[in-house]
Design a binder for these strands. Structure first.
Length: 274
DNA sequence: CGGCGGTCCTGTCAGC
DNA sequence: TGCTGACAGGACCGCC
């Protein structure tokens, strides 16, 4: 599920629940996520107080009183959900179980196991290899001059460029498609040709991410608590997943193509080639 | 360095 | 109904 809006929603849900709590215990059912889980993770988390919850790019950062931070990436299919200790039954693809000192459980559930967990020194977090090369956050402010400069150095098409986390973080396949639709830019347009539209691109990215966070905030808040991914965002998509369906603006059938191995959706009329 | 393709893994769905 | 292949919201790695 996770592009920036989902991760942000999960983080907001955790922020109201976790700070001040301690991990009573941590159980590992499967250590082989994308990377092997951190050495001695159970021991390093045991009895640690959670001091804060943050997000960087698509990473959930759980700060601990020990001076370490637990970084969680949900990959393609990761979910964090609360459960009650009384009636918890280990479900298929529950890989990690965090028991809190108030008796509740936080399950990490990830069928594809593309997710990852890392423990790193909080003070040196920004230098961690997974975070060091990340681009700026798109919210609340993204410098259009910066984006224009980055785009000008690109030869390839703009859509995969927007998904490059070293350029700007948080934009995945869905929101790259949606943002380009809002910006009325063809996904195959060369990135360097869109430099003079950098302001439009920035606004489009921010608009679509904010809208997703806003609406996701009501439904996906439960995402952290209960066991329901209900595909909420699909109701708002203008182009993503809408192949051959009429464009909401001009009724032209939405087109689909493949770029860098990922499906791209766009309106051939609204997003005319530059 | 930029850009592309392959790869990790499992579940789901379209098509035969 | 059952099988097969394509595809899925991410990102690293190796290769040109």
């Amino acid at each position: 599920m996770p592009e920036l809006p989902e991760v942000e929603t999960v983080v907001r849900g955790l922020q109201t629940e976790l700070p001040g709590r301690r991990f009573a215990s941590v159980s590992l059912f499967r250590p082989d996520l994308r990377f092997s889980l951190p050495e001695m993770m159970e021991e390093r988390l045991q009895d640690q107080e959670i001091t804060g919850i943050r997000r960087r790019a698509k990473y959930i950062l759980i700060d601990l009183a020990s001076g370490e931070t637990l970084m969680i990436h949900l990959g393609m299919s990761g979910q964090l959900m609360f459960a009650e200790a009384d009636n918890y039954q280990q479900a298929k693809h529950d890989h990690v179980l965090f028991a809190l000192d108030d008796g509740r459980l936080l399950r990490y559930h990830d069928p594809r196991r593309f997710g990852m967990m890392v423990l790193a020194e909080t003070a040196e977090l920004s230098a961690h290899p997974l975070l060091a090369h990340l681009g700026p956050e798109p919210l609340p402010k993204l410098d259009a001059t910066y984006l224009a400069k980055k785009l000008s150095a690109r030869k390839g098409p703009i859509k995969p460029a927007l998904m490059d986390q070293t350029l700007v973080v948080g934009v995945g396949n869905i929101y790259a498609c949606e943002a380009l639709f809002l910006a009325r830019i063809h996904p195959e347009a060369p990135a360097f040709q869109t430099v003079d539209k950098a302001n439009v691109v920035v606004k489009a990215i921010q608009q679509v991410l904010l809208a997703a966070i806003d609406s996701g905030g009501s439904t996906l808040r439960d995402y952290v608590r209960s066991s329901g991914d209900i595909g909420y965002f699909q109701h708002q998509f203008q182009v993503y997943g809408r192949s051959n369906a009429p464009c909401y603006v001009c009724t032209t059938p939405i087109a689909q193509l493949k770029q860098a191995g990922r499906s791209t959706f766009y309106c051939p009329n609204c997003q005319a080639p530059l």
